[in-house]
Each structure stands twice: as C-alpha cells, then as structure tokens.
Design a binder for these strands. Structure first.
Lengths: 166, 166
DNA sequence: GTGAATTTTCAATAAATTCAAAAAGTGAAA
DNA sequence: TTTCACTTTTTGAATTTATTGAAAATTCAC
C-alpha cells in the first residue's frame, strides 16, 4: 500500500467508523480528509474530493466547526474560506468526549434530577429506589471522571494515570 | 409525582435516552420497564405495557439478553418465559461498555492495524504519519483502560480510583 | 403423542435519517 | 446598485433502520 492509498483507505474507513459513533458518514469523511491533508482545503476542494454536493459539504463543515474539530483558516487576499483539522489528537479526544457527554450522559443526569428521590413505601418500591440511587451514583462518577479528563492534559492520561491504575 | 408516575417517566425517558446511545427506543424501554418492575414479566405483559407488536418485543428482548442486560426466568408449571433485568448497576455499566467498545473502538483498532506503519518520505507525509501514530497511542490507551474497567469491581471505580485521580 | 400456547422468523411497511439540488442570502468589488 | 463568488437554508428524494403482522416453528401441559 502506498502512502496515498493509505490516506484514501483512512478517509474511506473513517467515514464508516463515524456512523458507529453517531457521526454521519460525510462529516467523518470530511474530518478524515482534513486530517490527512497537509494544507488547508476549501469547501470546493472538499466537495470535489468526496464527490458530494455543496450543501452537504457546507452543513457538515459547520458541524465539525461546532464540535471544535475543524477551524477556518483565512488566506489573505482570498475571499474563499479554507479549513483545517485539529491535528492534536489529545484535543480531538477531548472534543469528542465533550460532545458525547452532552449527548449521552447529560440527559441521564437531567432525568435523575427530574425524578428526584424515590420514597419507597413498600418492598417493591424499594427496588426501584435502589435502581435510581445506583444509577445516580454511577452517572455522577462517570460525569466527574469525564470532567477531569476534559480538563486534564495529555500526559496525565497517557502517562501517570495509566501507571497509577496498572 | 407519585412513585408510579416516576416509574412511567423513567420508562418513557429511558427510551429516548437510549436512542442517543445507539440503542433503539424499544430496546431501551423494555430494559427500563424490567428495571422498574419488581417481578419478572412475560413477553405478553411487556408487549401490552409498551403497546408494541409481539415480534418487536421478541426481537428486542433477545437483543437485551445478548447484551447480558436481561435474563430468562422460568416459572415451574408455566410454559411462558418470564424476564428479569440485571439490576446490579455496576454490571449494567460493564455490559454497556463491552458492547460499545466492540462497536466503536474496535473498528478503529482494526483500521489502524490495516493501515500499519506509515513511512513518511517527505514533510507532507510526516504529518499523516503523526496523525496515525497519535491515534494509535490514544486508541490503545482507551482500549486498555476500558479493559481494566470491565475487569474491575465496583468499589475500585467508585472508591479508590476516584481518590487516586482526585 | 396431540394440540393449544408461546416463541421465532421474515417479508412488507413505516419512520427516521441522510443527502443532493436548488433557492435564497451575503457581502465585496465594479 | 448591480454583479459575482461564495455560503447557507430549505426541500424533497433516496437510503437506512425500526416495526408490524402473519405464518412457521417450537414447546410442554395434558
């Protein structure tokens, strides 16, 4: 496999991996394309490379910017906008964690908050109360762990942290 | 809100939370229903409670059993099968982690394995090589951390672990 | 063993999501 | 102020995924 073939395979596969991640295929492909590109690309170049429509390219580029995975890069004297991917993988990991926490964990915390304390009046209800209580316990632990992760630096995660729990 | 209302709200909301999790609405609702029920339920009771078809109920019950979140419970003298949810929340967390690792992380590891080493012949390709190398680093770290989580016990996660990284 | 009760399978359909094309908007330069 | 290059939004078509309904297979109480 030549390096170019590897790049192509990466873009292609990243697209299908994305769909297991709740990220649509095009969004993941654009991300991959920008990741493997050494220079900023314009919306036009992205659309041509991936053979997608302008609209589709635009929407997914915006979404990537929202996620903080892609930045605009303005080139002086050019009206056109260019885009560049966040290549610091630690930053990428954190951005993804932030989004997924928002989408997946926070609704659970909200639900638990809405439901509030369950005052069990009999044996039956006690079981329900326990489910809620435990769920709360683990959700909060996961929440604070992720917050810590988001605020931590890469070395903490890759180095110290791993040694500590080995 | 009465306890019954809380149960209903929980079942309802767990369904929509599920869909943010790559778990379909019905599967999550059945899970929630069994979680809040103090006695085992039959497929028929589940189908009636959630107003879904037999086929749908059956398929999603099977999926929950595959995930290890629900068990059969046979009542002597009864032909019918009854189902009961895994109520140990730590076990639930682990089961979900196992499934998501399979679906989300493992494809990335496979891709990286397929792509292999990138031998960068110029400055441009070096950037690509670095993206792949870093991605490999973090994917492996996440992988081993999750493996450890899966094999750990609840106290490790809730207690010691949290103190260590505080 | 038989047959009613129950579970499983699967083709048809419905619903949700993704995507492309076209229309509308924006703002810089002529 | 008009045009041009580009961006954004909207819409409906295509694709994918979930659900139903009904037939087929299985099970076990009798």
């Amino acid at each position: 496999m030549t390096t170019q073939e590897k790049k192509d395979k990466f873009v292609q596969s990243w697209g299908s991996i994305g769909s297991n991640w709740g990220i649509n295929r095009t969004m993941a492909q654009i991300h991959a394309l920008l990741l493997v590109s050494s220079k900023p690309l314009s919306a036009m170049e992205i659309k041509n490379e991936l053979q997608i429509s302008v609209g589709n390219a635009n929407m997914n580029i915006r979404a990537l910017i929202d996620w903080g995975l892609v930045h605009k890069e303005l080139i002086p004297g050019q009206r056109k906008e260019f885009f560049i991917a966040e290549k610091d993988m630690w930053e990428v990991v954190k951005r993804v964690v932030i989004q997924r926490k928002k989408k997946e964990l926070e609704p659970i915390l909200r639900l638990l908050n809405d439901v509030g304390e369950v005052d069990a009046k009999d044996k039956d209800e006690e079981e329900f109360a326990k489910v809620i209580k435990d769920l709360e316990l683990y959700s909060n632990k996961v929440d604070s762990t992720l917050d810590r992760l988001i605020n931590a630096d890469s070395n903490w995660f890759v180095g110290t942290f791993m040694k500590m729990i080995r």
